[in-house]
Design a protein around this nucleic acid. Structure first.
Lengths: 144, 144
DNA sequence: CCTTAAGTGAGAACGGTTCTCACTTAACGA
DNA sequence: TCGTTAAGTGAGAACCGTTCTCACTTAAGG
């Protein structure tokens, strides 16, 4: 059982299924849904069950190996997340490629909230755009 | 049929059901789910059907009368939105009260994305915190 | 090793949301 | 003020992403 796959699960247990799931996650360039992940896994024999994929994703999210980066057609979008510290994600609406960006929520916003007597506890930020490859390929919003 | 309720639907049609739905929306101080909205409406006779509530919410969202401000237990959270221009929402995790805040996504973030060859098209930002009333009432995260 | 709490899988269940379809009606133009 | 028609309504079924159940298996620590 690979060491690196073991680390992806943090305090959670490892299993042959979970190792294959980690590798499948790493095979994606960008964002993916649980269904797409299961689809990738089904190319090989002994496909992990649907429930196992969902449970593994939950474990990987808790350990910080993946992060939720939005949703598509009602399904949660996940992506490999190898950036430490507080940050957010920039998702390509063309190909799903994900990259990290620093947090734009700064002191001025905290103060503006304080003016409304709100104490901010946390926030969700996701940026969407078109990546270099998709721009080069002539990606247009209209085509999708 | 009230003029103000008519305006809430923009180009969409008005109906007695939709008028009651607008009033129900206005009866909420903060965020609510479609189910909670339907629940409020069911206090009176001739309760609009479930499908009607969902369709009205879609219409109200399109016209800008309400906005999605997050989710709770897998259900979309809506809130009355009377702020013009680009802004985001600050949701109280205690009582659901919502207020508007200016957008924290500034030039530096756009440039950081550009450095990664991303052209940002849009973004989603939601801030969560505790409002004045909930703070005064001794609201604690642990209690929820 | 041994123990045990965690993981697995097939299938059912769940729940928010959307769809279907026959019927009604708001809105607009003549 | 009609007549036309596309939009809205409602009951219930369908949809579908996700979670749960339960019997079985197994990774991990002592």
């Amino acid at each position: 059982m690979a060491r690196d796959a073991r680390a992806a699960y943090g305090a959670h247990r490892m299993s042959p299924q979970r190792e294959r799931i980690v590798h499948a996650v790493e095979s994606f360039d960008g964002a993916f849904t649980a269904e797409e992940l299961a689809q990738t896994l089904s190319a090989h024999p002994d496909t992990p069950g649907q429930a196992t994929v969902y449970r593994a994703l939950t474990a990987l999210e808790e350990s910080g190996f993946v992060a939720r980066v939005g949703e598509r057609d009602g399904a949660v979008l996940y992506a490999r997340c190898d950036t430490d510290g507080h940050h957010h994600h920039l998702v390509c609406i063309g190909c799903g490629h994900v990259s990290a960006v620093s947090c734009p929520v700064d002191e001025s916003v905290i103060r503006a909230a304080a003016r409304q007597r709100f104490v901010i506890t946390h926030h969700e930020v996701t940026l969407y755009g078109v990546c270099r490859s998709c721009l080069a390929a002539g990606w247009t919003h209209e085509a999708h």
